[in-house]
Amino acid sequence: MNPVLIAVIVLGAVALVCGLLLVMASHFMAVPVDEKFLALREVLPGANCGGCGYPGCDGYAKALADGREEKTNKCSAGGNEVAEKLAAACGKSFEEAEKRVAFVQCRGEIGLTEKKDEYQGTKSCQAARLLFGGDGACQYGCLGYGDCAAICPQGAISLIKGVARVNPERCIACGQCLGACPQRIIALIPFNAPVKVACSNKEKGAVARKKCSGACIGCSLCARNCPAEAIQVEGNLARVNYERCEGCGACQGACPQKCIL
């Protein structure tokens, strides 16, 4: 018999046996998969960012399918669109997803503030902070070594003039940068927040101003000018209560330091 023919036949036979084996295996040993889980998982964006509080989209879909999780609006990456589909798939009424965005509460750009010493170690905020609380004149401000930018799964954070800046179009509000920042100056705020305080300094006004000419000096002018009483000054630092804020912008005009953006 022709050796080529033998080779072809044997290879074909081996392939056939393997194929049959796999078909039988997948038929007899099929693991039933929850239909609801698959449907929910299909809806989720697959960013696996953890913004919902579960380990990845699989985790959230599983929790929803099992009935452990009630809320269908937890996916910050997907926003309203996904929340609507999830609610439909679970047979629940649609709740609007609160679209949020990360915001770095510091505007200590080069020029407004200075470095108090020269740091030459590992380019990491975590490491820089271990050495006398960082190299910035203001010990509360952004260190500018980009730990947040490194962890951001969307590449939404970039360093501009030595301060981390979030691109709101890209941010999916997963909150990973909040934990990565050793200064804890990144916050999740509503996407459409009309005003935001770009400072985290808690020192007394004169001291803060000396270190950074863009610092909040805790003068309370914003709080006094706010018609909705949405701003409170605690520890020499103004903070906006977004549930009350009406977005009139009176605080921005009143702020002598122009640190309310």
Binding site: I6, V10, V14, C18
Partner: peptide, 25 residues
């Protein structure tokens, strides 16, 4: 069968099928 020279292609086939099978099991 005297097919020693076919080892590469047959092994690829067998290994690929084996891994799939093991995954299912």
């Amino acid at each position: 069968l005297g097919l020693e020279y076919m080892s590469t292609i047959i092994f690829i086939l067998v290994i690929a099928a084996l891994v799939q099978f093991v995954e299912i099991v």
